[in-house]
Write a protein that binds this DNA or RNA. Structure first.
Length: 468
RNA sequence: GGCCCCAUCGUCUAGUGGACCAGGACGCCAGGUUUUCAUCCUGGAAACGGGGGUUCAAUUCCCCCUGGGGUCACCA
């Protein structure tokens, strides 16, 4: 049956923690698919777990998506939809597709462990399945605790995964699944099916870890008489040791990447390449190009290791190509109050930075006189005497340059003109250290241009005093 | 352990039976540019897990093994 309907996808995070980078990747693939198909991207907050869901995390999810520019077209919150779920739950009970189960947690746990130790997959015994409606109602009204279970048919439950092809499960091995704690507290496997159907979701694009939930959801969809969406299960993101990505190896929350100041274009580009690849050998791809080229057919099947080095490289390469004004405004948020770096400082930062939170350390010496170990002034084993000579000579040269020539290229021209090529290092290294206090820094010409004549001389004098 | 998924350089991947003694990118190594670092340029090492088939021909198709992963909640 080919339905000629508009593509509708959803990103359905539960607000029980900060937005995970793996979820972001799932969101991105959904978003890209929707945009590339001219479809609708739905954001659905799955907050049926009242204990664990927090508003703070819903806010984190939304701001994260916004930061990346993944705008949603429709927004739903499951906690607003209690009536809808209740109605469907009642119908299932009424039609005897689901039933009340009175087994205690302890009882269930013991059964599961027993089966596990026998080498069998844990499965509910079906004990309460045969209870009559009258019996169940009576026990409920007498105040006995009970949950709702869906009858899982003992037959093949299969689906055609867009990425993986046909996946087959044996319903007989699954066992009746709990779909609600009570009429007011439906559970994940239930609400997801109801919502996907009612929201007319056409494609469910989610992590591979949901494959094993799919047969239950299909059984439920059948019980409810719903048309099922198509499924596409994405490979999961892995640690370097190939286990499921965790905090032990890398930051897992998007907000940590935001706080560290990664380029958002890099985050998107990097995540897109984790499990997907465009045609051809391209690596650096903008969001618009991604939309142009995205296709579920090109999604990888195997898990992908999160490669921090590549993210870093991408982030730096996006900063390098970013225009000055844009970079300046992003940078400013990461600098202390009052620091107003000029063009030269900004461009040297822009060239080498991976994360904006490194900028402070990179720029500090421009705004505060540096301190450093005296030995650092010495280049390749220069003696103290030669360093002193070098600084004296440098001081002379710099003093002779008029303030108006304190431009990177002019300074370079004049100073290099006065220094013979064989001892450039001996002149430039001590000078650079005197100016920056650092082993690694931009060129002394750049620094002097930024500092101006007076401050440059002051720092050279300080170095002279230090070495003496 | 049951069920399910997966398998090309260290990593992300290209590759859909011959065009591949397997291409790109990150990382790594070497050299060059640079006072230093970064950038940049040049070059290099580096992979089809194993065994059976199918075929004139398999990285590519099938099976088995091995390996890795996911999942087995009154979480999502």
């Amino acid at each position: 049956m080919v339905k000629d309907t508009k593509v509708r996808v959803r990103f359905a995070p539960s607000p029980t923690g900060p937005l995970h980078i793996g979820s972001v990747r799932t969101a991105l693939f959904n978003w890209l698919f929707a945009r590339s198909e001219g479809g609708v991207f739905v954001l659905r907050i799955e907050d049926t777990d009242k204990e664990r869901s927090r508003e703070e995390f819903e806010a984190d999810i939304k701001s994260g998506l916004q930061w990346l520019g993944m705008e949603w077209d429709e927004l739903y919150r499951q906690s607003d939809r209690g009536e809808v779920y209740k109605e469907h739950l009642l119908r299932l009970l009424e039609e005897n597709r689901a039933y009340w189960c009175f087994c205690s947690k302890e009882e269930l746990k013991a059964q599961n462990e027993a089966m596990l130790s026998q080498g069998l997959a844990p499965k509910y015994s079906g004990k309460c399945r045969s209870l009559t409606k009258e019996e169940a109602d009576r026990r409920i009204s007498s105040g006995e605790g009970a949950v709702v279970r869906l009858k899982i048919p003992e037959k093949e439950l299969s689906f055609e995964d867009i990425i993986r092809g046909k996946i087959v499960f044996d319903g007989a091995l699954i066992g009746d699944t709990v779909i609600a704690r009570d009429l007011e507290s439906p559970l994940y496997n239930f609400v997801v099916v109801v919502d996907d159907a009612l929201m007319e979701i056409t494609h469910v694009i989610r992590g591979e870890d949901h494959i094993s939930n799919t047969p239950r959801q299909i059984a439920l969809g059948e019980a409810l008489g719903f048309d099922m969406p198509r499924f596409a299960h994405l490979p999961i993101i892995l640690n370097p040791d190939r286990s499921k990505m965790s905090k032990r190896f890398a930051d897992t929350a998007l907000r940590e990447y935001i706080q560290k100041g990664y380029a958002k274009e890099a985050v998107i580009n990097f995540l897109a390449l984790l499990g997907w690849h465009p045609e051809g050998d391209r690596e650096v791809i903008t969001k618009d190009e991604l939309i142009q080229e995205f296709s579920l057919k090109r999604v990888q099947r195997g898990g992908a290791v999160f490669n921090q080095d590549k993210l870093d490289w991408l982030s730096n390469s996006y900063f390098k190509q970013m225009n000055m004004e844009e970079f300046r405004s992003q940078l400013q948020e990461f600098l202390p109050e009052g620091w107003q770096p000029n063009e030269v400082m900004i461009s040297s930062v822009k060239e080498r930075i991976v994360r904006l939170d490194e900028a402070k350390g990179l720029l500090q010496f421009y705004f505060e006189a540096p301190d450093y170990k005296t030995e650092l002034l010495s280049w390749k084993g220069m003696s103290q005497e030669r360093v002193t000579q070098s600084l004296t000579k440098t001081h002379e040269m710099v003093e002779g340059i008029p303030e108006r020539d304190f431009k990177t290229n002019k300074l370079e021209e004049r100073i290099l003109g006065l220094v013979s090529s064989e001892n450039r290092g001996e002149v430039l290294w001590p000078l650079r250290v005197a100016l920056s206090g650092l082993e690694k820094s931009p060129s002394p010409f750049e620094i002097m241009a930024a500092l101006g004549k007076k401050e440059s001389l002051r720092r050279i004098e300080y170095a002279q005093k230090k070495i003496a």
